[in-house]
Amino acid sequence: MKAITMNASMRALVKSILGAMLGLFLGLMICWFTGESPIKILKILFQSAFGSGYDFGMTLFYTAPLLLTGLAVAIPFKSGLFNIGAEGQLTMGALAASAVAVVAPNVQSPVLAIALAVVFAFVGGGIWGAIPGFLKAKRGSHEVITTIMLNFIAAGVSAYFTLYVLKDPNSAQAETLLLPSVYHLKAFECFNGAPMGPLIFWLLALVVFLYFWMWHSVWGYELKAVGENEKAAGVYGISKQKIWMSSMFLAGGVAGLVGIIEVLGNSHRFKIGFSADYGFVGIAVALVARGNILGIIPSALLFGILQKGAGSLDLETDKVTRDLSYIIQGLIILGVAAEGLWTRKRK
């Protein structure tokens, strides 16, 4: 009897992997038609992801934001909300993280400085997530619409702050002041210049923690109940309004932590357009993980590898460009989404 559920969740995972493999296979078939050997493409992707300390560091650098945005999509999804707004949330989180330099330029302790930046990033993104949560709870506004709108507003707000309030006057670019060194995160030496350090372990720990939190806490249960049957949850006294607002706040906050990876870990300032569409790829990450919180780890890694590999494909081959990576990403999403079709048919 226990075996039944184990099988069910295992089967979902296996199906997801099969779907992803199918997508990858189709993508490789496409390059075969263009005259590049699929084996070579696989080799390039592998080399690009793991070939050297630097490459691996860069892969993790691309994976890390996807862990967060994957969570930012998967968590509200369990309460029945589709968060398209992770991009705006991470923008606001990063902007807030870069603002600590102005708010508290003279912090001495690195621990305090980083804790402060984390709070800023989390709250900045969290507020941006809580707004659609609030509108949904109080006014019934559809979260897909409001989160998309807020993505644009975040772009506008961040551009305003970057260009007029926090602007680095020495730079011709759209970027904020450089953060004092106390705010800089260390990168691993062995990554040889790739901007990723112990932070990756903290992020993995966050995923694992949220996995346990979602499953074992009363809040996680109520979230699931609302997502599954909001009417029944209401009959038994669970407030969907509270759940929606809190889950969107949490999601926004987690997405906002992308700001820590970028602002504290990488460029040490906020730059307009730094995100490689992490907020949107996060939707795909959550989809491939099938809402399983732990599944976000391999799923984010897969998309991180493909993002890292996009430039390498361009570099290492004559005919294939970065677009192949996006085609493969798309086919993987299709493969996973379509999996429902072919497994249902088999029944």
């Binding site: 790739a194 990488n266 490689a276 430039g311």
Partner: peptide, 15 residues
């Protein structure tokens, strides 16, 4: 090469 995103410049130049 065309950079796929704004974080890729460094690794492409490096390659």
């Amino acid at each position: 090469v065309e950079a796929p995103d704004n974080s890729a410049y460094e690794s492409l130049q490096r390659a």
